[in-house]
């Protein structure tokens, strides 16, 4: 451990110890059909440490101000996929987005604009930030998202070279958060489109050297609601909290459909 890094760490830690709060307005899209048929924006102004997560801010509002504010969450560190939402117009996980990264300051040092938060698009909103995830999971189930093999099971593990394992590594990271699918303009216009997440999960098996149902999955994705609908807008790749190269995976599936090699 070199000294310069220690200095930097000390600064970071001193900063953390003296946590300073800033006042931020969260403008949240509310909807509760038990109360009103229409959705509306509601502002909440709270003091919060800029190093905290947007999820922490939502909790602060729910716990201290308005218990009816409703959202899904569980792990709080970007691994369970519960809390994809539109934050300042971009799909993100609330638990993986720090306040300091989404607020801007005016000359006086005050936060200049409200942070907007709304449900992800393209799926029916059921209450506040909660959407109906069933169509999303249905598309996932439709691509046969499981290993298919024939013949006798080996007694030990199937062998797979490190290179073959690497081939589909990226798409194994998916947490099914729907940030990609619900950022896709094609999906907004036509909910029948499988959407990027389902294609990512098909990719994960098509390019797994142990799997034997690649052809079948490709046929499913050759459908009119399949990969050819993708217009390569890269919204999905930008949205993915796991850093998966979603568009690249879709392109690889398209190429496999043409060459029939995978």
């Amino acid at each position: 451990m070199a000294t310069p890094t220690m200095d930097k760490l000390e600064a970071l830690e001193a900063d953390s110890a003296s946590s300073h709060l800033i006042a931020v307005t969260f403008r949240i899209r509310r909807f509760n059909p038990e109360v009103s048929a229409d959705a509306s924006w509601e502002d909440f102004r709270i003091d919060i440490d800029p190093k905290e997560r947007v999820l922490d801010a939502l909790h602060k509002i729910k716990w201290d101000v308005d218990g009816t504010l409703t959202f899904r969450r569980s792990c709080a560190h970007g691994i369970c996929g519960s809390d994809a939402m539109r934050i300042n117009g971009r799909n993100r996980l609330a638990c993986k987005t720090l306040i300091k990264d989404i607020v801007s300051f005016d000359k006086s040092g005050a936060v200049s604009k409200p942070v907007t938060i709304e449900a992800i698009k393209g799926l029916t909103v059921l209450k506040d930030l909660i959407v109906d995830m069933d169509p999303f999971f249905q598309a996932y189930r439709d691509v046969m998202p499981f290993l298919v093999t024939t013949g006798n099971e080996p007694t030990r593990e199937r062998l797979q070279s490190a290179e073959d394992r690497e081939r589909f590594d990226d798409t194994t990271k998916c947490i099914l958060c729907a940030a990609c699918t619900s950022s896709c303009p094609v999906f907004w216009n036509d909910g029948q489109y499988f959407g990027p997440a389902a294609i990512v999960n098909a990719h994960r098996f098509i390019f797994d050297s142990r799997d034997e149902a690649g052809e079948q999955r490709l046929e499913i994705l050759n459908d009119k609601d399949g990969v050819w609908r993708c217009r390569t807008t890269f919204n999905c790749t930008d949205a993915c909290p796991r850093g998966i190269e979603v568009t690249k995976a879709i392109q690889e599936v398209k190429r496999a459909l043409i060459t029939r090699r995978f």
């Binding site: 499981f146 290993l147 093999t149 099971e153 080996p154 030990r156 593990e157 199937r158 062998l159 797979q160 070279s161 490190a162 073959d164 394992r165 589909f168 590594d169 194994t172 098996f205 797994d208 142990r210 799997d211």
Partner: peptide, 20 residues
């Protein structure tokens, strides 16, 4: 238990020989 998961498709990291 580990071999069952591998057969169900779990992508374990591999040794140079391709084993888990």
């Amino acid at each position: 238990a580990v071999l069952d998961l591998e057969k169900m498709g779990l992508p374990f990291n591999r040794t140079p020989d391709g084993a888990i």
